[in-house]
Amino acid sequence: MEIRYANSPAETKTFDTDRLRNEFLIEELFVPGQLNMVYSHVDRFITGGVIPTNEPIKLEADKHEMGADFFLERREIGIINVGPKGSVTVDGTVYELDTKECVYIGLGNQDVLFNSADPKNPARFYFNSTPAHKNYPTVKVTLADAETEHLGSINSSNERVIHRFIHLNGVQSCQLVMGMTLLKPGNMWNTMPCHTHNRRSEVYFYFDMPEDGLVFHFMGEPSETRHLVVRNEQAIISPSWSIHSGVGTNNYTFIWAMAGENQVFHDMDKVAPQDLK
């Protein structure tokens, strides 16, 4: 498990490209036959990816870093399959997940196994985990089950569909909020006009991009913006004080996860485009 520490706005504005990437960009989440995780001290997010091939892969705690006997001893988790069919087994109960389907698993569940339906064409499970204080039921969510909202327009190149999986009006959790945004063809901008939400941090995971595609992800204070070049299946850690917006070379999909003070999706501090620098 890789450890990332929190950074203040004052120090972040001094970072060069390499330092920005080392602190905020998660470049390699998916390796066949492995489970990779990054532990961020920004709201204590754990972000991970797993590709089970010939054998199931167990979600296990890093006892040194987490001080826990099993991963969900004091945590909850949201898992989304971004690849071919697979399954997540939770204490003996199997949840089949097709691409873009989600499962929430609450605090206290001990045995979590990732498996692929076809080892030669394996599933790709992306997840976010946050601390929890109460057990909520394990629930599978499909795109049809999610709360859906259509935003933006082709005129501003940000026509998109938001699918909310884990949120106040959907699957219940302690603090984790999680969903997926799909940009329609011909649209490249996400989260513009942008915002911050000082009561919550966020992690973005970009995927459904071609091999030569990329997203310019904008971060930083509104008056001190920076950018990071993000490629397919890479993630960005976004502190509460930072904007989180991006423009791609083509349309793409991204998974967003939030944690912090509250779970109110629209609790945000909007930033007018003319105020960005």
Rank of each mutant, 00 (worst) to 15 (best):
G108F: 01
I80C: 14
L113H: 13
D275M: 09
D269M: 10
N81D: 11
N81H: 08
E11C: 02
N251G: 07
F70C: 08
E261T: 12
F24A: 08
M268F: 05
I236N: 03
M180I: 10
P239D: 11
A132P: 02
N190T: 10
P56T: 06
I26R: 01
K85P: 05
F207Q: 00
N54H: 10
V203S: 00
V88S: 08
Q110P: 01
F165C: 05
P239F: 00
N128F: 00
K140F: 05
C102V: 05
V31K: 14
K100P: 00
P84S: 13
Q172F: 00
A117V: 13
V38F: 06
G106V: 02
V230L: 02
V247P: 00
S116P: 08
G170A: 04
P84W: 02
M209C: 01
V215G: 05
S242K: 03
T93P: 01
N158E: 08
E2F: 12
S153Q: 06
N109E: 08
G106F: 03
L214G: 07
M188C: 12
P52M: 06
G246R: 06
Y206Q: 11
F127T: 05
T99Y: 02
V229N: 11
N155T: 08
D62H: 12
N121R: 15
I80Q: 03
D98Q: 08
I26Y: 00
I243G: 00
C102P: 00
N169A: 09
R200K: 13
S87K: 13
L107S: 07
V177D: 07
N121Y: 06
I166R: 01
N169F: 04
V50I: 14
G86F: 01
N190F: 10
A61E: 10
M66N: 09
D91W: 12
D145Y: 12
I154G: 02
N22E: 15
R124L: 07
I51D: 00
E101S: 15
R160A: 03
F216L: 12
L97N: 09
I255C: 14
T14I: 06
V215E: 06
P239I: 05
R199Y: 06
F265Y: 15
V139A: 04
T181P: 01
N262E: 11
K58L: 06
Q34R: 11
I46S: 03
V161I: 15
D145K: 10
T14C: 07
E202V: 13
F71Y: 14
W241F: 15
G83Q: 06
I26E: 02
E147W: 11
A257L: 04
N158C: 08
V90M: 11
V88M: 04
T93H: 10
H195C: 09
W189E: 05
